[in-house]
Design a protein around this nucleic acid. Structure first.
Lengths: 346, 346
DNA sequence: CCCGTCATGAGGTACGTGCCTCATGACCTA
DNA sequence: TAGGTCATGAGGCACGTACCTCATGACGGG
């Protein structure tokens, strides 16, 4: 009866399949030298015994730690900075968990730099790469090549559909836009709503806009949408755009689906009665926190950077260990859109 | 230079402290037979080498798995059911991670049953207990006793301040109430707001009410608050309470800070023009999801059960391994209040 | 028939820690 | 001084997997 409680080991699998330990090992770790028929017998035994590699023993026995490389855009973007901070924090916490983490900054929005960095990854020293994807054919090809070399690629924040990436960690930006509209419509019985974007060349910004306008038109048809005006995620340009919007007929609300929120707040402050204009923005940063506290911003939609890094690491660990080879891949919970008011600021 | 990259092991600690492996082991695992002065030398070595127990090796070498026992209220409460479901899911996913999870149902809101269950925990088979606390002196004493026996206790959802519990995993319910008020105030320019509670004998319900009324009074003084009416988390009683509320002068909004949402929705449906009344409720369940989709409910505040279980397990694992003994305890991110509209339903 | 290739078996060591036993010396007390 | 308690050292086995080497037998081509 002890046997019923004990977890199955590689020895049990070997016995069940009628092969030696060495063969089980070859199958488990994808090494060559096993006939297809034999490999199938081993796989059957694994399934029938519900064998799962003992993670502790496996990590202990490995010659090297699992290694995950993050390729994150550099630059002054506050959100990317908080992503990097989260990576550092997790790297610290994962000391002793046999997981080594490297973060390499990539020139922002530069497909060539990103794909070059992906191509340079050595499967001997990298099990998994986590990238903030720029949508470009070169990047797609680099991901394909990395995958062929045995490096699992995970996209973060910005996806790369149609590529060989194994997983996407991030929020649903269309849903984010829809949610923003749903709140804005309830906040403002009627009136003109100004829309600000960073750049419509970015996939996530396009998706947010799509969701926002769809819900506004369908559910709150009494409102007039102004824009979108592009602020290119820059404080100065965003301030100029907002000032221009405020110069027109009175606005009931403003939705900024991009960055540059410091500029937005500055423009509102100079305008005066900013308390009456409902404002919805994205990403919890120093600027948006201040905006929430002062009342300049009503709601912030956030993609929790820390949670995203944690999720990416969990996925990366899972793929790096090839855990999904013989059992269903454990689908991690999708990243949720965080909604923050002054009253639930974390 | 290899030495600089290698993680420190117990051997290194022993050498650095000038003691034997056995003594390091005694210190690390809190076994008796070490003079205070010697233990201090070992602790110094641990700090100076930044030694961290290798989690993989440690788990592998242990005679038994880490074991975490959940004591969760039973009954028909939809939220507790989803907590249990989350526990089952995680238990499944943690096969192979040397963590064994037991969930024991406890008669709801019964301090005697809860404390008896805590007293019955054997430190030989339980490293950590996660409880949904009922506020009572017996429970406090049981937690104290368990802690003395070497069982770390973590409170979930409902805290037990002033007890020997090592950690609380849950949301800030005052903030939740404040957030609900902040939304409600923005949704309704003015008017009467009905308030429903489960039972004001519950700490979390009291806290939500406190936060809600504080913000309504301070920021939206034009509104008249009706209630709270107690529905005792029961659909029938809640429906009756709502029907009574709807019989009075027209309401602009309803805040249900307890359960029984199916009753709330039923009463609204029978009343007719429910689309005009803004409704804020708690916990994503089948009932509240339906309410969001149909438009009967505008916003649901949720404490992600899955996230809470994950956080509780992380904390439990950390305490069960005594990781925080020589380094700063890794404070896990606090559980966030989830805000859900129809448009960002997960 | 010889040799090369291939699938597989046999057996070992290593990873870092938990936990056990036994020995040794120091110190205290009667 | 004998006997007892206590702090500590020395050493070893175990955990389950990774990864290595070497042996063996089968098979096929020339």
């Amino acid at each position: 009866m002890d046997d019923l409680k004990r977890r199955a080991t590689v020895h049990d699998v070997a016995r069940e399949a009628g092969v030696s330990l060495a063969t089980v090992d070859r199958v488990l770790n994808g090494r060559p030298g096993v006939r297809g028929e034999t490999a199938e017998r081993v796989a059957d035994a694994i399934r029938s015994l519900d064998f799962r590699r003992d993670v502790s023993a496996s990590l202990l026995a490995r010659a090297r730690d699992l290694s995950v490389t993050f390729l994150i855009p550099d630059g002054s973007n506050a959100f990317m900075a908080s992503l990097n901070a989260a990576i550092t924090r997790h790297a610290q916490a994962l000391k002793g968990e046999r997981l080594s983490i490297v973060a390499r900054p990539i020139h922002a929005f530069d497909p060539a730099a990103l794909s070059a960095a992906i191509m340079a990854l050595d499967p001997k020293t990298t099990d998994c790469a986590v990238i903030v994807a720029t949508e470009h054919e070169t990047v797609r090809r680099a991901v394909e090549a990395a995958s062929k070399r045995g490096i699992a690629v995970v996209t973060l924040v910005s996806d790369l559909p149609g590529s060989a990436r194994r997983h996407f960690v991030g929020i649903d930006n269309v849903a984010a836009g829809r949610t923003a509209a749903s709140l804005m419509g309830r906040f403002c019985p009627s009136g003109r709503i100004g829309i600000l974007a960073g750049s419509l060349g970015l996939r996530d910004h396009r998706e947010r806009l799509e969701g926002f306008t769809a819900v506004m038109e369908a559910e709150f048809p009494g409102h007039e949408l102004i824009g979108p005006r592009e602020g290119f995620d820059d404080d100065m340009l965003t301030e100029a755009a907002v000032t221009e919007l405020l110069g027109g007929p009175p606005l009931a609300g403003i939705y900024n689906l991009g960055a540059g929120n410091a500029g937005l707040i500055a423009a509102l402050g100079k305008h005066g009665d900013s308390g009456r204009i409902r404002v919805v923005a994205h990403e919890l940063t120093a600027a948006t926190r201040d905006g929430l506290r002062s009342g300049a911003i009503d709601v912030v939609l956030d993609q929790n950077p820390d949670g995203e890094i944690a999720a990416a690491l969990a996925v990366a660990r899972s793929y790096a260990m090839g855990e999904s080879a013989h059992h269903a891949a454990p689908q991690p919970a999708p990243i949720e859109i965080g909604l923050f008011l002054r009253d639930n600021l974390r």
